[in-house]
Computed example of a mutant assay.
Amino acid sequence: MSYFCVDKNHRSSGVGKLLEEYCEKASITRNCDRIEVHCHSRREKAHAFYYRQEYVESAKYLIKLLK
């Protein structure tokens, strides 16, 4: 899975937690050793969600915007 997002009208209802748990189980089944999440710094509520799911900060991404 590449991306998922919970519609703003359904946030804080447990949907994101269920999706994240499914992704974790699927990843373990596939012998993955981690889940990496790219979440823009302005998405503070999303960061809070990931911290509650026991994610920790790691190296930062570097990007180059093309014209």
Rank of each mutant, 00 (worst) to 15 (best):
T29H: 07
H10F: 07
K67F: 05
L65D: 09
L19T: 09
Y3N: 14
G14E: 09
E44A: 10
G16A: 02
R30G: 02
E57K: 12
R34M: 11
G14F: 00
S41A: 06
E21Q: 11
C32S: 15
V15D: 00
K67M: 04
R42D: 10
E36L: 05
K8Y: 02
I63F: 09
A48N: 06
L65G: 07
D33K: 12
E21V: 03
R52P: 05
R11F: 00
L65H: 08
L65W: 08
R11N: 03
H38I: 06
G14D: 05
L66P: 02
M1T: 07
H40R: 11
G16V: 04
E21S: 14
K17A: 11
H47K: 04
V15E: 02
C32P: 00
I63C: 09
D7Q: 04
T29F: 03
I28L: 13
L66S: 13
R11C: 05
K67T: 15
A48F: 03
C5G: 08
Y50W: 07
R30F: 04
E21G: 06
L62R: 08
V6I: 07
N9I: 02
R30L: 13
A26Y: 07
D33V: 05
H38Q: 08
K8R: 14
L66M: 12
V15C: 07
N31W: 03
E57I: 02
A46T: 14
F49T: 06
N31H: 13
Y50G: 06
I63N: 09
L62M: 08
G16Q: 08
S2M: 01
S13V: 01
Y61N: 10
L19M: 12
N9K: 11
E20P: 02
Y51I: 14
R42K: 10
V37W: 00
V37Q: 00
I35K: 03
F4W: 12
S58L: 00
V6C: 03
E57Q: 09
I35S: 02
S2C: 04
R42H: 10
G16M: 13
L66A: 10
